[in-house]
Simulated scan of single mutants.
Amino acid sequence: MPEGDVLRRTAGMLDRTLAGRALVRAELRWPTLATADLTGATVLGTRPYGKHLLTRLDDGRTLHTHLRMDGTWRSAPTGSPRAAARSPQVRAVLANDTWTAFGRLLGMMDLVPTRQEHTLVGHLGPDLLDDVVDVEEILRRWSAAGPTPVAEVLLDQRVAAGLGTIYTAESLFAERIWPWTPADQVTDPARLLLVARRQMQRSVLADERPEKVHARLRRPCVRCGTPIAVGQARRPPQERPIFYCPRCQRRPSP
C-alpha cells in the first residue's frame, strides 16, 4: 500500500495540474457518487493526510480518495489520448482546460462538505509529514499501546498517520530494534519516529527510499551480511510482512 511519501508526491502532482483552475470535466465513477456534479468548481488544492487525499473545492466540498493497495493518480494534457481515460480501471476524472487528472483503481471515494473532513480522517493520529508534528500527541497514543509490538504500533494509523510496511521496517532497522519489541520497552520512541519522518522526507524530495531491509528476504544485510528474514505483524486478515536482520535487530533478552 502506498505510504505517506507517495501520497505527498501525488498531492503535489494534483496541485500542479488542478489547483487554481475550474473543472470543465468531472466524472466520479463510483456507485454512491455517480450523479455528483463538480463541473464549474475551482480546485483549491489537495491536502494529503497519512494515506488519504483531500481535494478541496471552492464550493465548500471535498473529494476524499484513498489509494488502498493498487490505486494511483496520473495526469495528461487535456485533449490527449490518455486524457480520455476510457479504461474501466479509472474511477475518477478531474479536468480543466489544460490538464486532466485521473484516478485508477482507487480504493475509497467520498464527497463531503469540507467542514466535515474530520468524519473521514479525525480518528487518525498526527501526520508524520506535516510541517509541524504534534509529537506529544503521538507519544500519548503510543503509551496507550502498552506492550503491543512496536511494528504494530508504527503501522497503526490511529497513533501516527502515514507509515506502512516499508518505513516501519526501515526505521526499525536503522535503530536496530527487533520489530516485536513491546512498544513500552522502546527506549526513545520519539527518536524512532523522527528517523521514519526523515526517511519519508528524503523520498518526497528526491524519490529516494532507504531500501536497506524491506523486500530483501534472504539477501545479505548491508551492515553485517546476515540473510534478511521476514516476520508477521498483526493477525489475519490484516497481517503485514515485516523484514528485519536477525543479527542487527536481535530479540531483546528477557
Rank of each mutant, 00 (worst) to 15 (best):
residue 74 R to D: 15
residue 156 D to G: 02
residue 177 I to T: 04
residue 146 G to K: 14
residue 248 C to A: 10
residue 125 G to E: 06
residue 161 A to L: 00
residue 10 T to Y: 13
residue 143 S to M: 05
residue 253 S to R: 15
residue 138 I to S: 07
residue 123 H to K: 14
residue 222 V to H: 12
residue 209 R to Y: 04
residue 61 R to K: 12
residue 50 G to W: 15
residue 197 R to H: 05
residue 83 A to V: 13
residue 13 M to T: 13
residue 28 L to S: 03
residue 128 L to G: 05
residue 100 T to W: 12
residue 29 R to E: 07
residue 152 E to G: 03
residue 98 T to Q: 14
residue 91 R to A: 13
residue 222 V to F: 04
residue 224 C to S: 01
residue 116 Q to T: 13
residue 61 R to E: 09
residue 88 P to T: 08
residue 139 L to W: 07
residue 244 Y to G: 00
residue 43 V to C: 12
residue 44 L to Y: 08
residue 17 T to K: 15
residue 126 P to C: 03
residue 157 Q to Y: 02
residue 158 R to V: 04
residue 166 I to M: 04
residue 57 L to D: 15
residue 107 G to S: 15
residue 250 R to A: 15
residue 13 M to C: 06
residue 118 H to C: 05
residue 209 R to P: 00
residue 186 V to A: 05
residue 248 C to W: 08
residue 23 L to R: 08
residue 214 H to F: 13
residue 239 E to V: 08
residue 68 R to E: 14
residue 76 A to Y: 15
residue 62 T to H: 03
residue 51 K to G: 00
residue 254 P to Q: 09
residue 81 P to D: 05
residue 245 C to D: 03
residue 183 A to F: 01
residue 45 G to V: 07
residue 4 G to M: 06
residue 227 P to V: 06
residue 134 D to F: 04
residue 144 A to S: 08
residue 15 D to I: 03
residue 237 P to Y: 06
residue 248 C to G: 14
residue 54 L to A: 09
residue 204 V to Q: 04
residue 7 L to Q: 06
residue 87 S to Y: 12
residue 82 R to Q: 13
residue 224 C to T: 01
residue 101 A to M: 09
residue 148 T to D: 01
residue 123 H to E: 15
residue 182 P to S: 03
residue 51 K to C: 03
residue 170 E to S: 02
residue 175 E to M: 07
residue 240 R to A: 11
residue 251 R to Q: 15
residue 15 D to Q: 08
residue 36 A to Q: 10
residue 19 A to M: 11
residue 100 T to S: 15
residue 131 D to C: 09
residue 245 C to T: 03
residue 114 T to L: 09
residue 48 P to F: 12
residue 181 T to H: 02
residue 24 V to E: 08
residue 61 R to D: 08
residue 60 G to Y: 12
residue 135 V to G: 04
residue 33 L to D: 14
residue 56 R to F: 11
residue 60 G to P: 13
residue 78 T to W: 10
residue 162 G to W: 00
